[in-house]
Design a protein around this nucleic acid. Structure first.
Length: 311
DNA sequence: CCCCAGGCTTTTC
DNA sequence: GAAAAGCATGGG
């Protein structure tokens, strides 16, 4: 087992980061020492929090996708981003009370996750609670993903790879729908999209190109069944490193109305209001990191106002 | 029994 | 064009 310790200058809340609803591929292990596990790009990873300013990464490998483990983790957890810069320059003066409420949430990071894994995860996230989304993705991993076990401090941990596009492309719709809350349409859409990725019709590597305009990226993703504006923006934000993408769901709509007194946010969420709200939010956020800020606001809203436990 | 949950698609006016 | 109904299930 390779073991790395990473020290950071600004605090990071690993638990918030992994379980704020942006990632559905991590498992929690509670014990005397709390730790988190997943398989990223076929590499087992176990993270243990030492303090706000230090955490430990364990893995059987020394690199992930050819990138040294330490470097990969720093990139994966976006340690290069200063979360406070995700808001507009004068945000703290415009919304002083909200700024105080947000303080504890600046230790929340958005991750640079695998594009395909993110696409499938968020295709499971339509009009359904976070608990059920996590359950669906866990079932997909357990049903289709290769099983693997690693030992950590003398304990066996069972891990599951996220299924490959080829694996889900070949899946039986009836069997897969058992993983998608018995929703056959969703199962069909996931299979079709997986076939698209496997056959190269959906080229996620090309879509990673930061020079691609956001609206164009969104329109390309929306050509696939089961992907609308919101899911497309989630894939862009969490899976394609597009921190300028600002997904708008019921929670975002709620806090835009409540915290920012948006009149558009009080209308029903159709494509027209979606685009209006998208533009509106960029006026008080840093447009280049609007989605990053949006996720911090999203999590703060759920935790502080709605009192929801996301994990 | 009601409503809502990280929405999208199809139908109808 | 915009608005309304259907999808599936768990939890409050």
């Amino acid at each position: 087992m390779n073991n790395f310790r990473i020290k950071i200058k600004s605090p990071i809340n690993i638990r918030q980061t992994l379980f704020s609803g942006q990632s559905f591929v991590w498992d929690i292990h509670d014990g005397t020492q709390q730790y988190y596990s997943s398989i990223i790009k076929s590499v087992p990873l176990i993270i243990r929090e030492i303090s706000e300013f230090e955490f430990e990464v364990n893995s059987t490998e020394k690199s992930v996708g050819g990138i040294p483990l330490l470097e990969f983790i720093r990139h994966y957890l976006t340690l290069d981003i200063d979360t406070k810069h995700a808001f507009s320059e004068n945000f703290s003066q415009l919304y002083p009370k909200l700024w105080q409420l947000l303080m504890p949430y600046f230790s929340l990071r958005i991750m640079r996750q695998d594009p395909y894994e993110t696409m499938v995860s968020f295709m499971c996230a339509q009009g359904i609670g976070m608990h059920l989304i996590r359950k669906q993705v866990a079932m997909l991993r357990q049903t289709y993903g290769e099983k693997r076990s690693v030992s950590f401090h003398g304990k066996e941990i069972i891990l599951h790879h996220f299924p490959s596009p080829e694996q889900l492309a070949a899946a039986d719709p009836a069997l897969l729908s058992r993983c998608t809350n018995n929703n056959r349409i969703r199962a069909r859409n996931i299979i079709l999209a997986s076939q698209g990725v496997a056959e190269g019709r959906i080229d996620l590597d090309t879509l990673c190109n930061p020079a691609l305009p956001l609206s164009e990226l969104r329109n390309i993703l929306c050509q696939n069944g089961g992907i609308g504006y919101k899911i497309a923006d989630c894939i862009a934000l969490f899976g394609l490193g597009r921190f300028d993408a600002f997904p708008i769901d019921t929670h975002v709509k709620q806090y835009l109305a409540e915290w920012f007194n948006s009149t558009a946010a009080r209308r029903s969420l159709n494509p027209a209001t979606y685009l209006a709200l998208d533009r509106e939010a960029r006026s008080f956020l840093n447009p280049n990191l609007a989605g990053y800020a949006g996720h911090i606001l999203f999590h703060c809203w759920r935790m502080e106002i709605k009192r929801l436990r996301t994990f």
